[in-house]
């Protein structure tokens, strides 16, 4: 078959850039898993909550952008804290399955609340990203996708730096690697748990705002979370690097499947990648292999 390289390049470029958003949302997921070992199935719904908060501040209350975005992110942080305190903390010490199922319930509650407050209608966020078309050689790149990817990488870098150098970040990493030892050296582990949920919710809000400004918001945008789930599993649940690499990879696979096979193959392709990775490397590309003892 005659290969159109220009097309391949253009599609790949867009998809990898789009994958940046998966990476950011994946990071939000990994944050919680690393610290608390909770698989958060409601990650897509938390994204949605963030974007609706932004919608409220920016479109309904008409706040300026520089105020609306931080306000939405902070409000999401509070939401994260509330979730941790009321639903996750009581399950400390229960089998991980319980917390997993709680997050399923959480997803349903969040969708219901959004529909109650904002109705199930599709809405559009105010445009705040530059609209100047971007070209790389002959290839077009949608400005929203480009700027979305830029914002995502800025946040990812910031998070990585914070976790390298800030005390709270160090405490989180310490808790992740050994909870008991972290307690022993005087780290307030429950607070680290709260912290991880707050940060995760805030990151989710940021990606929600970007995703929403690209594709509009609706109460069913939690579907995005399914792909994020694939991303973190492919990358390895507890690996930050894994989330980043897998985010781009899954974005690319999805884009190529959509371009060469058709839209109906997008989700199928990502899930096939997931099953394949699980069979070959059960703990993901960069995940830590757990050793079980009695």
């Amino acid at each position: 078959m005659d290969m159109d390289w220009g097309y391949l390049f253009e599609v790949s470029l867009t998809s990898v850039m789009g994958g940046g958003l998966y990476a950011l949302a994946g990071l939000a997921f990994v944050m919680v898993y690393k610290a608390t070992r909770v698989v958060n199935l409601a990650i897509g719904e938390m994204l949605m909550a963030g974007s609706y908060l932004f919608f409220t501040f920016a479109a309904m209350w008409a706040l300026p952008l520089w105020l609306a975005i931080p306000a939405a992110v902070l409000a999401s942080g509070v939401l994260g804290a509330v979730i941790e305190r009321t639903m996750i903390r009581p399950l400390l010490g229960e089998p991980p399955i319980s917390a997993f199922m709680v997050t399923i319930g959480l997803g349903s509650v969040l969708v219901g609340l959004v529909e109650m407050i904002w109705s199930a209608d599709q809405r559009r966020l105010p445009d705040f990203l530059p609209t100047q078309a971007i070209t790389v050689g002959d290839a077009f790149l949608a400005p929203k996708i480009f700027w979305g990817a830029v914002i995502a990488s800025v946040f990812i870098t910031a998070v990585l730096l914070v976790f390298r150098y800030w005390r709270g970040g160090v405490a989180l990493r310490a808790t992740a690697s050994d909870q008991a030892a972290a307690y022993a050296v005087g780290i307030n582990v429950p607070r680290v748990f709260s912290l991880s949920w707050v940060v995760s919710a805030m990151l989710a809000a940021v990606s929600g705002i970007i995703v929403g400004s690209i594709g509009g918001i609706s109460s069913s945008m939690g579907v995005f979370g399914l792909t994020v789930l694939v991303v973190v599993i492919v990358g390895g649940l507890d690996s930050v690097l894994g989330a980043l690499v897998a985010g781009l990879l899954v974005g690319l696979v999805e884009g190529l499947a959509g371009a060469y096979l058709g839209g109906e193959y997008k989700l199928l392709a990502t899930f096939i990648v997931l099953v394949f990775i699980l069979m070959v490397r059960p703990y993901g590309l960069f995940g830590t292999r757990e050793i079980e003892r009695l």
Binding site: M87, M101, V109, L110, A120
Partner: peptide, 22 residues
Amino acid sequence: FLAPVRLVIFGALIIVFLVFEP
């Protein structure tokens, strides 16, 4: 509000039972 309330109650039942009456 019927449909959203239904969703909220669905989720809340899952959470409440897991936390208080596993």
